[in-house]
Design a protein around this nucleic acid. Structure first.
Ligand SMILES: [Zn+2]
Ligand SMILES: [Zn+2]
Ligand SMILES: [Zn+2]
Ligand SMILES: [Zn+2]
Lengths: 330, 330, 330, 330
DNA sequence: CTACATGTAAACCGACATGTCC
DNA sequence: GGACATGTCGGTTTACATGTAG
């Protein structure tokens, strides 16, 4: 869970680009804007919902600095991530953990994942499971509701919501984005792909992307990330092959001097800087949440009063967070 | 991390500390409330008996403050208890004494023990003895009634009752809970495990828990405790190994080349993500954490007192969590 | 090596030779004997119908001298017949014409075709179409009744009857056998195969035979022929490959790194060991072999003539064997 | 099927010993003796039947020159034969083909295989299947008669007879020895082992031999061979290990000059010399057998008469064989 | 308590099977 | 018809699990 993968199509020489992370200077402005008119960020629901036929696929950090992360280090299993290609190679029915970050994490946010064909010709065709894998008798469907039989992409979470867009016929899945565990500022979500790219009567050997969008509960898009994905039986073999293909292609057009460079992404200190060591407690119901949040807020304020000082940046952010919560539930 | 046995990460030298279990101030109130209306806690016998296929495994002190204790200090050679793992490592056919507490001890109470597989996949499969150990000719069966040949778990007591649930096919054993001997408030029960986790045609190397339930004679569940158990030939070696594995796992981000299997309930962080029915707040530092947690706890206790009722299962779990947190950071 | 199509090892240039099938001298006698008492051959319908799970697959000319013919000369691109392998290689949805002969052609006769897996393990599993090809939306099903969507094998004839054996779940197709056109004594029937052997969720790369039975309207079997079939995308390539494999196998003692699977009936020598109901004698040289085989053959034929009856299945098999031997060594 | 394995316990330097093959000089005497007083060879049935507790295990070619052969060449399977150790390493439920030779092959002969513990302590204990593998529910028993559930050793042949010796409680299996196929003078029998040496409540890690005896129908022993067998999950690993152990043991007691020498057994020309290229034909019933055999005999005799010469050795043997057959069935 | 015995599982790799494209 | 795409299999190796023995 250490490497944030970059999203450009360029060769692996390029360092990952973190500029899309929110600059702290503009942070308060955004937050305050959001607080006052929550979720104003152009919903454009009718014109271009995150699941419409011609959905936008451009990367977009958005007001929350939405980011996505994969732990490419633990390769060698049923999946491999290629930093060179920014592409995930994964077997069918294999759990993959992706990390999501947004600042701040607040209730009412969702992450949606929608698979799309990346070739222009097929782009508008919705991706659905093949006849074989969607059959009720298929073991991968054992114990699941028929609602999700047609979904290629699953989120393994009891709150996962499987959406079907009647107009585009796209199927997607989303989950409420909780808060990060102590010691990290990423929220981990587990995905599984339930068809192969090669499935006949399904994806039929067409290459695919997955589009991840950060949304509020009105489906307004607050951020967007893209990842190439190939679901296949031999992730390692195919990753190697595609990387070699890519290199030899570059070899023809670009001088050979290129050398493999260590991925800065993997240990970019800037991401570490952002880690906040927060603690968490769980509350039973909204009433308790409001009550305890209020207590926690007054606690800080009292402390500041006693210590006769202003809030640190961290404290400020937390207070902000508390306010958001209180506003939302009171 | 929600087990009654121990909540700290310290080594197993420390004796178990049970003081944190139920806050003594509010304790009497709860009990007295319950005493007047005994067994009010919805039995839900049909929906979920303590031996049904999908039996509940969550810890639950219940109206009697049901607790369980093991004397880990006197760990002999044939068994060892790991406080780090909350897990008993024991050889086959070895006597182990467990202490049970409920307040008040009254007639008509039983303690039942039912072994279950903890892996999600196998959870519903009843645990029975392997063909080898259940054979009449097996020396461990000498002198016993054939009724218990198939039971992995025995209570060494003349009043032990061996139950077979025809619907789930689970086999369990229970015994009337007497009164504590003078000088203690724990009742001791002797158990023996009659198969190993590694027994082929039996548990087949699958890890197991034992669920202890406090019941009345109508099988209504009045309390529940869980203990991980591994029956093996080398309790010490295997305990050491698992503890080391656990430590190195917590050290690394991801367990490297190890075999991991989905467990039904685990303290693995991803399971926390599933606590969707709970709310979370973030705190800045340990001091704030302790302070706010204590506030949240007293809030619940106050509520219970006001409403003159015992804790629901959820509330109890939360209280438990709070206690653990407090103990860890105070 | 007991197929009607061809018994020599020569290349597929040779046209099929049908002369050896039934010795013409004794042939008329047999037929006339049968004509007077038609259908005397024990139908044993209950015990072993032509579509039951354990259906018989042995070749059997029967009282009508049932034979089957394929015009291998006109091998187009979409199908090829291998005389070396007695195997049809054909593409999906491709018309193939088979000739059937019986003497005399009379009303009330049917030809049934039932596909079966030839590997022992899968033999009893009924062959049905894969989920992809059986889907109503599949273009190959356009304009057809849903009754036949699940049938791998079709007869292109308005009188074709598609049977479903509820007990074995086998699907087969049959057609009334008309009379030959002027100038020939073969009746031609057009078949199509509607799945590939490689279809997942269908035949799943398992090799297949087709069993052709001559039947009366009571389903009594009056003759039986077998043909290996492989439905694939590259009939020619695959035919060449299998023929080469076969040759190199016969050359070497043991197929080195190849995958071999038990077949239900094969010319593999170990199956001969099982012929426990037969007796064997050893001969010194080819001359003796031919001589004695011829003697044994005439012995059986004489007996049939004397007893005025047709050959039993066993006798016919032996006669077939003898013919093969004679042809091979004469 | 090329290597006859030798049966001595010595190191692998020793060439295989073929002296036990029948000397051709004494051949006629033996045969004639046998023909006149068939099966006179000391039956000793009561004292030491081939399945008694203290059964003899010494190698014994006997009057028929009984021999056994295994094809050790094909590695990488589920079994491996060590010529160094004269030991078969094989997985459970794995087919192994053994070749048997006796001169002459005649009807009424049987081959029996009985497994025994080779350690002195356990030798008299009968070998039976473990509780796990003998259970009716065990998939390896699916489709088999309960009679053979307890047998560790199976012969895959419809005529296999499973014997139980009530006095010794040993279980063994035997099969009538047919005639060799054309082109070889070995009869092949397929065996399977249905428990592992490590099976608890069964062989329990004790090493085993298999004793093969050539018998007549009165259980008189006419030949005996012995083979070490280890049934395990990793035949290759364990074979390698035992061979290394053996070598290092020899290294301590014997000067190191020993070098691995090619096994003469593997291509000993003497065995090739004995190969007779005979042809075979099958007959339907005894009557046909007698008739055709008589024809074949007179054919040879006529030929000799015409060519005015005596019989060659081969012819002589065949004639003898024919006589045997006629005598037995007429 | 160390060394070993021995079953199991995962990972790896190369060979093959078989559809598709050009 | 050749080159490729891509699933599957079989064999190998390595690591691990776990009982036994000295
Ligand atoms: Zn699919
Ligand atoms: Zn057991
Ligand atoms: Zn199909
Ligand atoms: Zn066994």
């Amino acid at each position: 869970m250490s490497d944030s993968f970059h999203c450009s199509q360029e060769s692996d020489i390029l360092p990952p680009d973190f500029k899309h992370l929110i600059n702290s200077e503009s942070y308060e402005d955004i937050i305050s804007a959001v607080e006052n008119e929550p979720f104003m960020v152009a919903p454009m629901k009718l014109m271009s919902s995150p699941t419409c036929a011609m959905l936008t696929t451009d990367e977009y950090a958005g007001p929350f600095g939405f980011e996505i992360q994969i732990d490419g280090g633990s390769s060698g299993k049923q999946w491999m991530f290629s930093y060179d290609l920014n592409k995930l190679f994964i077997n069918i029915d294999t759990a993959i953990h992706l990390g999501f970050k947004c600042e701040p994490f607040q209730s009412g946010l969702f992450v949606r994942a929608v698979p799309v064909y990346c070739e222009t010709d097929a782009f508008q065709e919705p991706i659905v499971r093949c006849l074989f894998h969607r059959a009720e008798s298929n073991p991968h469907n054992k114990g699941f509701s028929a609602d999700i039989f047609d979904h290629v992409l699953r989120i393994i979470h009891s709150d996962a919501m499987y959406d079907y867009d009647e107009s585009s016929e796209r199927r997607s899945v989303r989950v409420p984005l909780g808060h990060p565990q102590a010691g990290t500022d990423w929220v981990t979500v587990e995905f599984k792909f339930m068809c192969k790219n090669s499935c006949i009567s399904g994806m039929n050997r067409r290459p695919t992307d997955v589009i991840f969008t950060l949304e509020d509960s009105n489906l307004a898009v607050l951020g967007r990330r893209k990842m190439k994905v190939r679901i296949c039986s031999c992730p390692k073999r195919d990753k190697t092959k595609e990387e070699e293909d890519m290199k030899s292609k570059h070899g023809n057009t670009v001088p050979q001097g290129k050398r493999a460079v260590a991925h800065k992404t993997e240990d970019d200190p800037s991401s570490k800087l952002r880690k906040v060591d927060l603690f968490q407690i769980s509350l039973l119901d909204k009433e308790a949440l409001v009550d305890v949040t209020d207590y926690a807020r007054s606690r800080i304020l009292r402390k500041l009063r006693i210590e006769k000082r202003g809030a640190t940046e961290k404290e400020e952010k937390l207070l902000n967070d508390y306010e958001c919560t209180l506003q939302m539930y009171e």
